[in-house]
Design a protein around this nucleic acid. Structure first.
Lengths: 365, 365
DNA sequence: CTGAAAGCGCTAACAA
DNA sequence: TTGTTAGCGCTTTCAG
């Protein structure tokens, strides 16, 4: 690693001033083609890599956007393995039966897709993307550190404590994704959770003639609550009995346990309407383990539209959030806020789409 | 957005010098508790967010690592949809039959998992992570830009042209992931592709008594080639006929086409040994469409160990790369290189694991 | 079209 | 323990 050359080195080698070097890179048209060329040659020969820190300091802008993601933990090839005794070892490579890979239940898979959207939009607009997600607890220092590195910040729901957010929101544009508005200066990208769930439930009732539906979800989560509301609306409109509360999928309960619990309570409902795809997938697994056929004995539906639900068998009927778009929209908003020095927060609600697949009893293909 | 306060503002408000402000954040123990406290109070009141640019410039280090990822394109809810006519519109929510979500075939899914590893390890070590991946072509400017923002860079295979790499490698530590060594100053994190495929093929031959195996993969890709070599080794050791070339899965051919082609050529082999999980999954779909049962009529195996293969039915037998570990290892190496100002590149090979699931004919569960 | 020069906000000697 | 001060490398007026 030789010392990194600076504008001074390049300027000297090209026989020009440092200003000209800077111009060559930032405002090429302002420099005479011949000098521009010699600067480029000098820079190339020296292996010049402009310092983003210096540029950022001089311009008062970093040119980067930030995404604060989950502080998830995933044990590689650990939990969730169906592993059993391994056959003979071959060529030093371990061989195991079944199992495998990341246990997606410990991680909200949809973030991958939202994140892709953020990445793509950032790059397209010439911004670099900084991904943050503190280790362990989300300390103020961690969030502040990344805030100090970017011109705008997108955050996933429930990742940054509100008091920290309150302070930051005065210093840098911040947009919260799929989190109901709760702070005056915060911009938002949301989705119509209630309408989506309402439409899905309508389908179950109208097209499949179901009347005994059970909603499963986490109670204190705003997204799940909005979805539950849509579920209730559908039942109410259909003149069916409207439950007060969803069946809670306590965070520690596995699908297997949930299903066992359900079976012990009496006959199954016509459908298990789940607040998320992951929950639905987990429950479908639990049903299989208990010998219950989906959708013949009970229909199961999800919400989110993650790829796994598409691959699962039966394929999961669900409400798809435009995840990539959410990420893109978040970036669009940030850029807007940054370039217009806007004072007021911007919010946008994206449409969802009901995807009828096999798990609700709809025909294959 | 009020003007962002600086050390000067904080210093003034706390009645100390800017150095003391800096010290309270960087070397707290060096400051008397009482003054430290008053500085913290002033900073909090002002909403002070230290500028990473200024710090980076002053220290000559950005405190961030970079990951250069793929320049992928994914159309939201576009390509790959099995969509057909939509039923009645409900509550403004579109309802479609089947289809859905991201079409994973257009994107090397394993990068998500490697990326997670990189993220986790970075955060754990207190580094920020910058994700880059130029739009359209990977121009020198794009790579250089991100190189100028970080202290070290991890790159996915085939994402950065070699000539650009050659220049950068002298200015900043770079580690290439799952790409065979090809540059003197480049560090590497690899996996034993050949041994893994060898072990998998051994299993097919020894445990399932198969003898007619066909390898499917992209020829000019080094990873696929190493895997093909392992495949050949297994056949050779078993005294079977060793094919010279794999069946090429030209990038444009879909699994459906590949299968059609295969069927037209005569009887199917005992197994289709695929170079990647995605290819295997695609081919399994193609086989289903053509009414061929897996694994009863033909076994199918993959390589990578992506989550989708776990969820697919039949579950995909494969060789799992420790993806998260690869990402982590890459970061470890970079940090090592950075802190020790090492002159020489470091490389590490990680072990793979054969996962026996359903698609090769192994019993369920 | 090019050069000179004044910062941008922070860190880290070095002094006090 | 705290303050003074000299840069870090680049951008950007303002002159020439």
């Amino acid at each position: 690693m030789g010392k990194r050359p600076t504008v001074y080195d390049v300027a000297e080698r090209a026989g020009v001033s440092i200003a000209t070097v800077s111009f060559t890179f930032r405002q090429p048209e302002r420099v005479k083609p011949s000098t521009r060329h010699s600067v480029l040659v000098a820079a190339g020969a020296l292996g010049y890599v402009p310092s983003a820190s210096a540029r950022g300091l001089a311009k008062g802008q970093t040119g980067a956007l930030g995404l604060f993601s989950f502080d998830y933990l995933r044990a590689e090839d650990a939990a969730g393995l169906t592993t059993s005794a391994a056959p003979a070892d071959r060529a030093g490579v371990e061989v195991v039966r079944g199992g495998g890979g990341t246990d997606f239940r410990h991680f909200p898979l949809y973030v991958d897709e939202v994140q892709r959207g953020v990445e793509l939009e950032c790059w397209q607009r010439g911004y670099a993307l900084l991904i943050g997600g503190g280790n362990q607890i989300t300390s103020e220092a961690v969030v502040t550190d990344i805030a100090g590195r970017v011109d705008g910040l997108a955050i996933f729901p429930h990742t940054v404590p509100n008091d920290i957010l309150d302070r930051l929101v005065h210093r840098i544009p911040i947009v919260a994704m799929s989190e109901p508005p709760h702070h005056d200066n915060l911009s938002h990208v949301t989705v119509d959770n209630a309408a989506g769930m309402r439409a899905l439930t309508d389908h179950l009732i109208a097209d499949h003639g179901m009347s005994d539906l059970l909603f499963v979800g986490r109670t204190p989560f705003s997204e799940d609550e909005a979805r539950f509301r849509g579920f209730q609306d559908a039942l109410r409109s259909a003149g069916l009995r409207v439950p007060r509360k969803p069946l809670s999928s306590g965070s520690e309960r596995t699908g297997h346990e949930l299903v066992a619990d359900l079976l012990s309570r009496g006959p199954l409902p016509h459908a298990l309407v789940c607040a998320t795809d992951e929950l639905a997938l987990d429950i479908m697994d639990g049903l299989v383990e208990h010998g219950v056929a989906v959708p013949h004995q009970v229909a199961v539906t999800g919400f989110d539209g993650i790829a796994a639900g598409h691959i699962a068998r039966p394929a999961l009927t669900t409400v798809r959030q435009p995840m990539e778009l959410m990420g893109r929209a978040a970036v669009e908003i940030l850029v807007e806020l940054i370039t217009h020095q806007a004072e007021h927060p911007v919010s946008r609600q994206l449409p969802v789409k009901v995807l009828l697949r096999e798990s609700c009893g709809c025909p294959t293909g």
